[in-house]
Amino acid sequence: MILADAVRQLAYDPGIAPAEGGLPGLSVLKTVVNSINLFAVIAVVGAMCVSGLVWAWGHHSGSHGAEAKGKQGAMTAAGCALLLGAANGIVAFFSTMGTQVH
């Protein structure tokens, strides 16, 4: 009987789902997150510019370490830009996948 109770507890659905407008201040929170995203995109553009300069300086001065760090910074900035741009899609995808778990 104890095993049957444990299985019954696992199958229990609490009925929780995201609801728009459930809390006051949701529009303010969305505005804050959008502003943080914009700030991050601007920071990534700056990081890409600095990395490009370090990469070029390393290449032309013969400093292989600086050239490698410039390439690494450029790739990191590109990856960050990809994640910032795809954040809504990634969260929506995994949220949808999560609702299909039974």
Rank of each mutant, 00 (worst) to 15 (best):
Leu82Gln: 14
Asn37His: 08
His59Thr: 04
Ala68His: 13
Val33Cys: 07
Lys69Asp: 00
Gln72Tyr: 15
Phe93Pro: 00
Gly65Ser: 03
Ala47Cys: 10
Ala68Met: 12
Gly52Arg: 07
Gln72Phe: 15
Leu53Arg: 01
Ala40Leu: 15
Gly70Ile: 09
Met48Pro: 00
Gly52Cys: 13
Gly85Ile: 07
His60Glu: 05
Ser63Gly: 05
Ile42Cys: 11
Gly52Lys: 08
Ser61Gly: 02
Ala77Cys: 14
Gly79Lys: 05
Ile36Leu: 08
Leu82Gly: 05
Phe93Gly: 00
Val45Tyr: 12
Val32Pro: 03
Ala68Val: 12
Asn37Val: 06
Lys69Ala: 00
Val41Phe: 07
Gly46Met: 11
Ala47Asp: 11
Val32Thr: 10
Leu84Gly: 01
Ala81Val: 09
Ser61Arg: 10
Ile36Phe: 12
Ile90Cys: 00
Gly73Ser: 09
His60Leu: 05
Val45Phe: 09
Ala68Lys: 15
Ile36Tyr: 15
Val45Thr: 04
Glu67Phe: 03
Val44Gln: 10
Ala78His: 13
His64Leu: 01
Ser61Asn: 06
Gly52Met: 13
Ile36His: 14
Val44Gly: 02
Ala68Phe: 12
Phe93Asp: 01
Met48Gln: 12
Ala43Phe: 15
Val44Glu: 07
Ala56Met: 06
Gly65Pro: 08
Gly58Pro: 00
Gly62Cys: 02
Ser63Asp: 10
Ala81Tyr: 05
Ser63Lys: 06
Phe39Ile: 10
Gly73Lys: 12
Ser35Glu: 09
Leu83Asp: 08
Met48Cys: 09
His59Lys: 06
Ile90Pro: 01
Asn34Tyr: 08
Asn88Val: 02
Asn88Cys: 02
Trp55Lys: 02
Ala78Tyr: 15
Gly79Phe: 14
Ala78Pro: 00
Trp55Cys: 08
Lys71His: 03
Thr76Arg: 03
Ile90Thr: 04
Met75Tyr: 02
Gly65Leu: 12
Gly70Gln: 05
Ile42Pro: 10
Ala40Phe: 14
Cys80Ala: 14
Met48Ala: 13
Trp55Tyr: 07
Ala77Met: 14
Gly89Asp: 02
Ala47Ile: 15
Val32Ala: 02
Ala56Ser: 07
Phe39Trp: 11
Ser63Pro: 00
Val45Gly: 03
Val33Asn: 08
Ser35His: 07
Gly58Glu: 04
Leu83Ala: 10
Gly79Arg: 03
Ala68Trp: 10
Leu82Asp: 12
Leu82Trp: 14
Thr76Ile: 12
Gly85Phe: 08
Ala92Phe: 13
Ala43Glu: 10
Ala87Leu: 04
